[in-house]
Design a protein around this nucleic acid. Structure first.
Lengths: 108, 108
DNA sequence: GAGATGCGCTACAATATCGGTAGCAATCGG
DNA sequence: CCGATTGCTACCGATATTGTAGCGCATCTC
């Protein structure tokens, strides 16, 4: 079952697994929103534009299977691995800042 | 129309736009596959597990609007911005390698 | 102990998105 | 003209996502 998290590619290369999972709706956003502090299910929902509980729960299950997110008494939080992935998202944020300043608004 | 590429969030923060677009099926994969050399539409299709032309074309249109990908006589290629984003994907690749070695296979 | 609140989560139907197949117009080389 | 390749669209069935309602549980407060 866990292996079926790989939607498309069959190579099994880690990057493919990752690109696949991250390419699902709200996955990146969830990791982003959890980067600073743990959040409850409903807080997460609120921060992610009121994503449906169905989708959110699905994504959270996947992320827990991949050991990027865990769920304890405080709510949902990034694991050690999730945090290091979150760091990459911070880089992405900086990149997005530069990109937005230089690319004409009409293109975005 | 171009602004409508933002699916969920209404903040307009660059990172949100980016997380939104990258979180669509095949977007990350397309950027990944183009990181080394330009590819024709059909080559891209082949490398992306034979993604349907419908989806591929949609993603490519979006990426062109965002000026991350361009289309010339050689085929599809990353723009300057696309390339710098591709660099981030290389970091992600390295991260995925470490992650895969340390996280039990059953979780992936 | 009876609300009232917040929690994670599920059921179900509607909708949006994606996939698979076929095939077209344009271009190029021979 | 012929065949091969290009980018791409039309069509339709399959899958993923959304929106809404609400359940069972725990925790407070009175």
């Amino acid at each position: 079952m866990a292996a079926s998290t790989t939607r498309g590619s069959t190579t099994g290369r880690p990057i493919m697994v990752l690109l696949d999972v991250l390419g699902r709706r709200w996955t990146l956003r969830v990791l982003w929103e959890l980067r600073e502090a743990p959040l409850t299910f409903r807080e997460l929902q609120a921060r992610c534009d009121q994503v449906s509980p169905t989708s959110l729960n699905k994504r959270l299950k996947e992320l827990r299977e991949l050991q990027l997110v865990r769920h304890d008494e405080r709510g949902y939080a990034l694991t050690r691995w999730g945090e290091s992935l979150g760091t990459q998202l911070l880089d992405l944020d900086r990149w997005a800042g530069r990109w937005a300043r230089r690319v004409p608004h009409s293109a975005r």
